[in-house]
């Protein structure tokens, strides 16, 4: 088993958070993981991206330019990574910020999610990353809801522990939307 995904957006969208969740859930499943964050000026509003490689064998390269999946939370992320998605790969995009026409490449599977609206419907726009995470779980099939639920406590900082139930609900919603095709 080998899976690579690039998650990208702007600082504050929770890209690092969902990457941490996936990485830790994979480790707890006994898988190998490499987590390569972008570095440079990382602050709210700046660019942020993570390359995750997950495998049951030794991981060589921690960089990839043909990921099986890209999660793009804004237009700049789609612009930068759409053409890198491996053929037949998956492009999950935040359609609240990205025009759907941008997602079409012909040989990949695009999934447009209105992450912000879905998150707002659950009470906070801050849950938009969890909507995307849920869709990723469903579409990639590499980890289940239970795997993620089991590590939520560990990855959530003390001051944010009270957000765990809402986050889990948003992940469930993401799974549901992906199961139905889009939102």
């Amino acid at each position: 088993m080998y899976y690579d995904v690039i998650m990208a957006g702007f600082g504050g969208q929770g890209i690092q958070m969902i990457s941490q969740i996936v990485a830790l859930a994979a480790i707890r499943r006994g898988l190998n993981v490499t987590y390569l964050p972008s570095y440079g000026v990382e602050k709210r509003g700046g660019r942020t991206n993570v390359t995750l490689v997950i495998a049951d064998e030794e991981i060589g390269s921690m960089v990839t330019n043909h990921p099986k999946c890209v999660i793009a939370m804004d237009t700049i992320a789609v612009d930068k990574y759409r053409d890198q998605v491996a053929p037949k790969g998956l492009l999950i995009a935040n359609a609240s910020l990205v025009p759907e026409a941008m997602l079409d490449r012909g040989d990949i599977v695009p999934l447009a999610l209105r992450c912000n609206e879905e998150a707002l419907a659950l009470g906070s726009v801050k849950l938009s990353n969890m909507i995307a995470l849920g869709a990723f779980l469903k579409k990639s099939g590499i980890l289940g809801f239970d795997d993620v639920e089991a590590v939520m406590d560990e990855v959530t900082p003390e001051r944010l522990k009270n957000t765990i139930p809402a986050n889990l609900e948003a992940i469930r919603r993401g799974i549901e939307i992906a199961a139905n095709g889009a939102s």
Binding site: A23, I27, N32, V33, T34, Y35, L36, P37, Y39, I59, M62, V63
Partner: peptide, 10 residues
Amino acid sequence: DAMIGQFQEP
């Protein structure tokens, strides 16, 4: 190199 310094693994 900075990749080894800044990436994460178990």
